[in-house]
Design a protein around this nucleic acid. Structure first.
Length: 257
DNA sequence: CGGTGTTTACCGATAG
DNA sequence: CTATCGGTAAACACCG
């Protein structure tokens, strides 16, 4: 109906906070997570206002990423080398905004200390997992034939044992008290859970035409890491699908005035 | 080195 | 009024 053609606001400053802009960028990505540079790009692509004074607003944006609990830094997957980590939204932060409008925030999303420690421990474990994965890979696959030959060869699974032989120390996670753990535990993500690869296809992400379907990673043999990583992303997607309402994207004019 | 990430401090606006 | 929130500056550590 009153469907705004294209958000851009010309050279005027858009009415969104950095948190909103960042959330927007993250939501618009297929995997609901982006590296910092992509967040920049998203914002600059859509809002000409932010094509200038980049030093200033990018510093502010970085400050927001670190400062606000609603943003979670996800370690890079070993098969996607590059600078910096990926940023995503905490699953419980998807409903952070009033009635789906990005213009007004309901309240600051703040994790309790316990939750925060928990999450940090799990992310640390994931990072540690990555390191161990790379280390093992370096051992099993000599550094020789690597690189130039193949444009994109997922570096993995040359020798696959059904279960990871030696896993990094994830004690900070496994030592956690067994309170009702939901979703975001490395344990859960790594559990060998039966191959329900897509019994219930991901919800179609109602109303968000900006979104494209999840890219399928075509890996011959899923490594334990891949399974874990996909599981992890599936958790995020599920949280997003559950919390997102169709009205998120078209920026709504401020209700009344 | 430059991009990334963390942290502290300060300010103004505004919500309660 | 105080608390909270958003924006900005800035110092600094980390890392590819």
């Amino acid at each position: 109906m009153p469907r705004p053609s294209r958000e851009s606001y010309g050279d005027q400053k858009p009415p969104y906070s950095y948190i909103s802009l960042t959330a927007m960028a993250i939501w618009s990505s297929p995997e609901r997570m982006l590296p910092l540079s992509e967040i920049y790009r998203f914002i600059m692509d859509r809002f000409p206002y932010y094509r200038r004074n980049t030093q200033r607003w990018q510093n502010s944006l970085r400050h927001n990423l670190s400062f606000n609990d609603c943003f979670v830094k996800v370690p890079r997957r070993p098969d996607r080398p590059g600078k910096g980590a990926y940023w995503t939204l905490h699953p419980q932060a998807f409903d952070m905004f009033e009635n789906g409008s990005l213009l007004r925030r309901r309240k600051r999303f703040k994790l309790q200390k316990g939750e925060k420690d928990n999450l940090n421990a799990e992310l640390a474990a994931l990072a540690s997992f990555n390191r161990a994965f790379l280390a093992r890979q370096a051992n099993t696959a000599p550094p020789t034939a690597m690189g130039s030959a193949s444009l994109y060869t997922p570096p993995m699974c040359t020798q696959m044992s059904p279960e990871p032989a030696e896993l990094p120390d994830v004690s900070p996670v496994t030592v956690l008290p067994q309170r009702p753990r939901r979703a975001f535990t490395i344990d859960a993500l790594l559990e060998p859970e039966p191959p329900r690869l897509s019994p219930s296809p991901p919800q179609p992400m109602l109303g968000m035409q900006v979104l494209s379907p999840l890219p399928r990673l075509e890996l011959p043999i899923p490594s334990p890491y891949m399974l874990a990583a996909h599981r992890y992303q599936a958790e995020l997607l599920q949280a997003a699908a559950h919390a997102l309402r169709p009205c998120y994207f078209p920026p709504q004019p401020l209700p009344v005035a």
